[in-house]
């Protein structure tokens, strides 16, 4: 993959945009599976919470994967840059689905309860803050907005580091007891972010 040039990509008919769209659709498979299984009654006694949890996990997974792209290129020479945008957008999409299931399906848009949730309950505050970062990042990831933002695009999108940290905390304290997986994810976030601190003069600056 790393060695592929633009021309070979064009030769087999995959323009960058087409490839990104296909990737995006491919990784929506978990969503389609869950929805199908849920409608058919195969997600157990509480399909709504099943989806809430599953989509939350996919959101943080894709967020993590999007953070792995740059270090992979810089330190392993594997260039998956074209995957970065769809991965980020997938994280946003699954986060939005996750929140939809909480707010609409589970809470019935009960504004009184929801207001108390996001003002008094730490794990939900962390979740909301994460989403408040992911939202503008998703909105500014079209070609047009990237161009319009110019040199501001990069610093803005560095906010994703904050989103990853906040999401890890949300995940860590989402349960009644401590679970192991959130700590594994948090460790990965630390590793991926610490790569950013390493300066390597030889690597080209432009992604």
């Amino acid at each position: 993959m790393s060695g592929r040039s633009v021309s070979s990509r064009q030769k087999n008919g995959f323009t960058p945009v087409k490839r990104q769209v296909l990737l995006y659709l491919f990784f929506l498979a978990p969503f389609v599976f869950d929805l199908t299984a849920g409608v058919m009654g195969n997600l157990g006694p509480d399909p709504a919470h099943y989806c809430l949890h599953d989509f939350g996990r996919y959101a943080i997974r894709f967020l993590l994967l999007s953070l792995a792209i740059t270090p992979l290129k810089r330190f392993a020479g594997v260039d998956l840059m074209l995957w970065r945008r769809p991965l980020g957008l997938l994280a946003f999409t699954y986060a939005a689905l996750h929140i939809f299931f909480y707010v609409v399906v589970i809470r019935h848009v009960d504004t009184h309860v929801l207001w108390r949730d996001v003002t008094t309950r730490p794990f939900l505050i962390f979740g909301l803050l994460t989403f408040l970062i992911l939202l503008p990042l998703a909105l500014t990831s079209t070609r047009k907005t990237i161009k319009a933002l110019g040199r501001w695009w990069r610093p803005l999108h560095r906010l994703v580091y904050g989103a990853a940290i906040l999401a890890s905390i949300h995940y860590m304290i989402a349960f009644k007891t401590w679970h192991v997986q959130p700590f594994v994810y948090a460790a990965l976030v630390c590793i991926f972010l610490s790569f950013r601190l390493i300066r390597k003069g030889r690597t080209p600056r432009r992604a």
Binding site: V39, D46, P47, A48, V105, I106
Partner: peptide
């Protein structure tokens, strides 16, 4: 204040 009734509702409406 309220509770979800397990086994009722659907994927899209608890």
């Amino acid at each position: 204040a309220s509770e979800q009734i397990i086994g009722q509702g659907s994927l899209f409406y608890t």
